[in-house]
Design a protein around this nucleic acid. Structure first.
Lengths: 140, 140
DNA sequence: CGGGATCCTAACCGATACTG
DNA sequence: CAGTATCGGTTAGGATCCCG
């Protein structure tokens, strides 16, 4: 019962995350573009991924942000960090079962973004052009 | 076959939103706690919702952020804004079909956060305590 | 009622340099 | 390789006042 479509049925809990509560705090942590991307990369591979490999797979992230994001995810129990004290050092990251569970949902979001990117880009352009023509909202 | 290049050459599906692209830009917009919450509130109701009603349903958001978030979502074609030039003014917000589609996924994220909030809170506490006891990472 | 316009502060985050 | 530490610019966003 982990799929999005099945989860969608459980509307009984009636959005209890909309008010200030621990669940909403969790949601606030997930609402981060780097978090979404890191989860995406980690779940896309077959096994653990090393730090710089991870970084190479994510165009645009700085070392600082990747470190911080991984640390946060590890703290939340979504990512496991394995250190092998060799030289040079070797640190591998992978998703915990909890992280894999969440990864299914974030991956669905990513796929949704891919599918609808064009439509959204178009909508954005139309909106901007409407605003350019009608500086003040006209009441029809 | 451990390397990325080999994985890519083998024709494995690579999440196309992980690299810089329009889809990733879309994802970055969705990666916002207010966006997630607004979508959650809009889809929870049965019909259009007025501005202050929306605000009341979301504990903690300021008028400024709600206005900006709604404007962004309208720009992306996810939210429809209907103005009735009565006095006092009446402005109603609702999800477009595209917004409803996305709302199913974000709602799944919200529900996931509700289900796993306790586990994450616990993991967080354990992590913090481990860091307090082991200031330097121990290789074991 | 549904915002817009300002001011102002905390935080974010990139860039850079250093380390085991 | 996989980070930590620090500086500094930019911004997010809260608080407040105002308006049609």
């Amino acid at each position: 019962m982990d799929t999005v479509s099945e989860l969608e049925e459980s509307g009984n809990l009636v959005d209890s995350y909309l008010t200030r509560c621990p669940a909403r705090d969790v949601l606030a942590v997930l609402a981060d573009k780097w978090v979404l991307l890191v989860l995406g990369v980690l779940r896309s591979g077959e096994g653990p991924i090393r730090f710089n490999e991870l970084r190479r797979r994510m165009d645009g992230i700085t070392q600082k942000m990747l470190t911080r994001t991984l640390r946060d995810l590890e703290r939340e129990g979504l990512v496991r960090r394995s250190v092998y004290p060799t030289v040079p050092p070797r640190v591998e990251y992978s998703l915990t079962p909890l992280g894999q569970d969440l990864g299914r949902i974030t991956h669905a979001m990513g796929q949704w973004a891919v599918r609808n990117a064009d439509e959204i880009t178009t909508a954005r352009a139309e909106f901007d052009e409407r605003m350019a023509r009608e500086p003040e909202p006209i009441s029809s």
